[in-house]
């Protein structure tokens, strides 16, 4: 690994100022689970590494009845997995985290780092997008809030400017009679990165009609993506097995998987169809039960 200057700011504004000063040569370092690997491989060679772990304001999970869950960027995957408040308010997040990588990565890697890395083969972004999550971003000139869905541009490319840091994820409260489902499919070992991950959310209106529908596909394109045609097909209707099957078929045409060691392009499309069908059916059933 190439030597670098190492800094440990203790406030967000100090960190943003250091990033700005570093031009394109400085990088934010949080958990470091992905960064250290990229640096060891020589894929990233920052001149300055800005470790934000000493910034206490980026830690912790809060819940406000109106705002929803506010998850600090430095919260680790394992903290999210075992958080009492998350278990109570959004248990789906704890369930998703159980299968993320392995316990060492979950103990070290952070939620903010996971979202900001732009890594396409991961789980959390599609689940958060299905929940209409927003992220809070700080820069040397202030703060802004953006739907997570808008963060992603391409493989490892986000809309974060050079001096910006993700500080928080905000997950708004889910309406009554909502079902959320995430199905992660690994084509090799369970601790491997997912081959395909599909998140669905259905919020019911009167007569058990699907009022709000989210179908978010992960690992099958440069960014997590919403299958908007499939969502539109289901919206306003009651879900039955035939409609779930049709939505799955539509979703297979809305993604752009690449062939790799986790499966061919054709195979992944087929998996998308099956997972969308199953995840919609399960979300609808749990929405109807609640």
């Amino acid at each position: 690994m190439k030597p670098f200057e190492y800094l440990e700011p203790t406030t967000v504004s100090e960190a943003c100022a250091l990033l700005k000063k570093g031009g394109g040569e400085a990088r934010v370092f949080a958990g470091g689970a992905l960064m250290t690997i990229l640096m060891k491989e020589g894929l990233l060679e920052p001149k300055t590494l800005i470790n934000i772990k000493r910034i206490s304001g980026l830690k912790g999970i809060d819940f406000h009845p109106q705002e929803g869950l506010a998850i600090g960027a430095l919260v680790t995957h394992h903290e999210l997995e075992t958080s009492g408040i998350v278990k109570e308010k959004l248990p789906i997040l704890c369930a998703v985290e159980k299968d993320v990588a392995n316990i060492r990565v979950r103990s070290m890697a952070t939620v903010g780092g996971n979202l900001a890395s732009g890594e396409p083969l991961t789980d959390l972004p599609q689940v958060f997008i299905a929940l209409d999550a927003r992220i809070k971003i700080a820069s040397s000139s202030g703060e802004r809030v953006m739907p997570l869905e808008d963060l992603y541009v391409d493989y490892y490319q986000t809309r974060l400017a050079g001096d910006e840091i993700v500080t928080q994820v905000i997950v708004p409260p889910v309406p009554e009679r909502t079902g959320i489902e995430y199905i992660r499919f690994s084509s090799s070992s369970v601790v491997d990165k997912p081959c395909v991950g599909v998140a669905t959310r259905i919020s019911l209106g009167p007569q058990r009609l699907c009022q709000t529908v989210r179908i978010v596909l992960g690992c099958v394109g440069p960014t997590p993506l919403r299958a908007k045609k499939a969502e539109a097909l289901v919206a306003g209707k009651p879900l039955d097995p035939k409609l779930a099957e049709e939505a799955g078929a539509v979703a297979t045409g809305e993604c752009s998987p690449v062939s790799d060691l986790r499966g061919s392009e054709r195979y992944k499309r087929a998996v998308v169809g099956v997972l969308v069908r199953r995840a919609l059916a399960q979300a609808y059933e749990s929405a109807s039960r609640s």
Partner: peptide, 22 residues
């Protein structure tokens, strides 16, 4: 690359891959 677990250390009680912690 944090896959195999042979370099596991406990950092503040939590398992980490020593090969990938600065």
């Amino acid at each position: 690359i944090q896959v195999c677990g042979t370099c596991t250390l406990l950092l503040n009680g939590k398992p980490v891959s020593g090969c990938s912690v600065l």
